[in-house]
Amino acid sequence: MTHLQSLAASIRVIQNSYKMQMAENVTRNTFQFTLALQPVLFTLLSVGIYRFAGKPDLSLYGIIGSGLIGMWNANLWTSGFIVQGERWSGTLELLLATPSSLMVVLFGKSLSNASASLGAIFITFLTGALVFRVPLAIEDPLGFFVGLILTLLALTTLGLVLGTLFVLTRAAGNMTQVLNYPIFILSGLTFPITTLPLWTRPLSWALAPSWGSQALGQAAGLSDEALMPAFLWLIVLALIYFLIGLVAYRRIERIARAKGGLQEF
């Protein structure tokens, strides 16, 4: 098989796993809740707290942060359950044994979750406009759109890393629950990371949602800083996550093949 044929085959696998995941998501109540209702409730909570505390000017920041929380939830939650779902259905080993790489399948599925999770941003903006009458004037719509796509890409690759690591554990569900809030805290999604101790700063910088929040906030006009550094960080992080995912996947695949299965994990 030539490189071109192999690439075409991988794209076909991504396309089909994307479609398959989308079909599963459409019928899954949990995903619908995570995508549609949770962003509304987080917006009500964060903007409600700002307004109660007499800081309505922070409403747009709260809306963008809640949207990213929604995107993250839809991404991480479902990525955790992609592997768990395959394991429960008894198809994980079969997927690993197929000539197509499991990582390509996971990428297609993570991309599907990530693109669906874009709806969360739309829902939070709608909630802000309808409930709190927040004027939704985005200063730089093009920058906002580019920031959103880059954030999406970085979240997909991060979802891929987690999805790959979840192959080795049956506690993926518990782990996703534990991982959610530290990410929200460290990424400064609803309060600035400057309110956190200084030693947490490198952890925040290593997380794509931090830069996503920064990029979207800047594009919306919440600060005057240049957009480009945040964009570059998102690209670099997406590449790093992808490489980590690739290395982790190869190692896991080797372990699984050496042990003749994944039953013991």
Partner: peptide
């Protein structure tokens, strides 16, 4: 939520 509340209020 505590950090959010501290920042806001």
């Amino acid at each position: 939520f505590v950090l959010l509340a501290r920042f806001a209020g």
